[in-house]
Structures are given as C-alpha cells and as structure tokens.
C-alpha cells in the first residue's frame, strides 16, 4: 500500500489560500529504551482540516500526539508549523519562550480529563480569561465579557462565570476546557480523547458542539480517539495506528467504509458489532 497516495489531501479540496500545510510531521519516532512509542510517522495537516488518530490503547497514538504538540521530545524526526506570518518553523528548534507562547496562543490542547486542563480552584471566568491575561490583556471588564461570550458559545450560562469548575458536571467541565483553549482563536487544537469518560448522551452533545465550533472557526484539529464514531463524526481524514506504526491512512469515510488493512477491517467490524 502506498501511504503517500492517501496521506496527501486531494488537490480539489484545498482552497488557494491554504495551499501549504499548517503542520508537517516527518518521520517522527519516539522510543522508550528498546520499546517503540511511535515510529516513522509522517503526515501533513492542512488549515481547517480535522485529522483523527485512531488505535487501541498502547498503539502509540498518545505518544504521537504528545510528540507533535511539543509536549514530549521525539527521538528523531521533525515537526514543522506554519506560523501566522507564513514562515515554516521547526517546533523543536524554536526558543522555549517562543514555543510556549505558540502553545498558549495559536494552539490549544484539550485533555481527556478536564482536571488536567483546568484550574479547579479559580472561577470559570478566570479559567477562560487566563490566556488573555497571559498575552497582556489588562482590562478586567473586557476579559470578563470575553469570557462570558466564550462560555455562551460552549453553552455555559453567564450566571456560572464566577463559579469554580469543581461545581460543574463532567460535560460542563469539558466544555469549559474547550472555551479556555479557544479564547485566543487558535488555528490548531490537539485533543486527547475529548469525549472519553463522559456518559453516552453527554458525549453526543459534546461532539455536536465540537463539530459546530470546528467548522465555524475553521479550526485545524488533531484528535486522538479509540472511538471510531468520534472519528466518523469529527474528522476529514484519519490515521490508524498499531504497535507504534501507521498501518492505514486516508479520508475518514473511505477508511471506515472500505478499510484495506486487515487490522483496520477488524477494528471497523468490532465497532459494527456494538
């Protein structure tokens, strides 16, 4: 199977303004001693595109996500990101200050467990406003109003703006985490099992919300999930991983409707049995 054939997005889907990839991952490898976390992964992500990385636990999808989001240094390989000025930057060659600035302005990261992505002891408003304050906003009234606006976009009422997230339900916490990430209008958001750990009905509502936000904001997303239904609903393309390697990649509908690798066929059939 030729991966390059399926990894490049079809030319007719790409607007001229987005003719260069936003993120380019090249031969990314992470080993733990003699054990492989992920090996030789390459793909391009285009502006506004949603890519799902699917696989069972231990398949290397979380290692891969951490390596491309600069949360874990890869053993070898590169990750290039197209900055707002159009220049391509190797994220592991950036100064740390620049990389951290990028992470809290042009990127977002949604953790599976909202506790990992929220400050549980400050109000919802301060959680959403933190990034604004980090980039120098010094007007309390404006920060609070922007926070209220973003809370409403994730369906959290204005009356909860001063409440701490520990008084929120699981679904609300996850929506708050999403608002906290989106307030600086990032162009790229990483998500690690964003609906994991939620009740099925809550999951469906969150997926709907996410899908709407992604399309309204034109977000590029890399989402890690073991749930093929999440990949189906959210993503344009997907990568299937097994034992640290990409075994199949392509448009989501094609992979799910016509899986080519035997392992993908197994994955798809097991979801159909549910």
């Amino acid at each position: 199977m030729s991966l390059s054939e399926t990894l490049d997005a079809p030319a007719d889907e790409i607007a001229p303004a987005a003719s260069k990839p936003l993120l380019s991952v090249n031969q990314l490898t992470r080993v733990y001693g003699s054990r492989i976390g992920c090996a030789d992964v390459s793909f391009d992500l285009w502006p506004g595109e949603v890519l799902a990385i699917v696989g069972e636990s231990g398949s290397g999808k979380t290692t891969l996500l951490n390596c491309i989001s600069s949360r874990m240094t890869p053993t070898c390989g590169t990750v290039h990101y197209r900055m707002r000025d159009g220049a391509s930057a190797d994220i592991y060659k950036m100064a740390e200050a620049e990389r951290r600035y990028l992470m809290r302005t042009d990127w977002g990261f949604v953790h599976q467990n909202p506790i990992d992505g929220l400050r549980m002891t400050v109000s919802a408003g301060a959680n959403v406003g933190e990034r604004l304050m980090a980039v120098g906003n010094r007007h309390y009234g404006n920060i609070r109003n922007t926070a209220i606006e973003w809370l409403s976009r994730v369906e959290i009422g204005e009356d909860r703006v001063d409440d701490q997230p520990r008084t929120f339900s699981g679904g609300m916490r996850q929506r708050l985490q999403i608002a906290r990430n989106l307030v600086t209008e990032p162009r790229l958001v990483f998500m690690d099992e964003p609906t994991g750990g939620l009740d099925v009905s809550v999951q469906a509502r969150l997926l709907d919300l996410l899908r709407g936000l992604v399309s309204d904001l034109g977000l590029a997303v890399v989402v890690v999930t073991h749930d093929l239904a999440v990949a189906r609903l959210l993503s344009d393309r997907m990568i299937v991983m097994k034992e640290g390697r990409v075994i199949e990649a392509g448009l989501t509908d094609r992979v799910l409707d016509d899986p080519r690798a035997p392992y993908t066929q197994l994955l798809v059939s097991s979801i159909l049995q549910v």
Binding site: A97, G125, G129, E130, M133, A134, R138, Y140, D162
Partner: peptide, 18 residues
C-alpha cells in the same frame, strides 16, 4: 525565566470576581 506572569493577573481577576 520566560517572564510568563499571566497567573498573577488570574489571582487579581479572581479577587475582583469574588
């Protein structure tokens, strides 16, 4: 080291909110 002081204002924000 990186002059990341946004958190200080989170503290003051919280003060005003409360």
């Amino acid at each position: 080291a990186l002059e990341e002081y946004g958190l200080m204002h989170v503290k003051l924000y919280e003060d005003i909110a409360r």
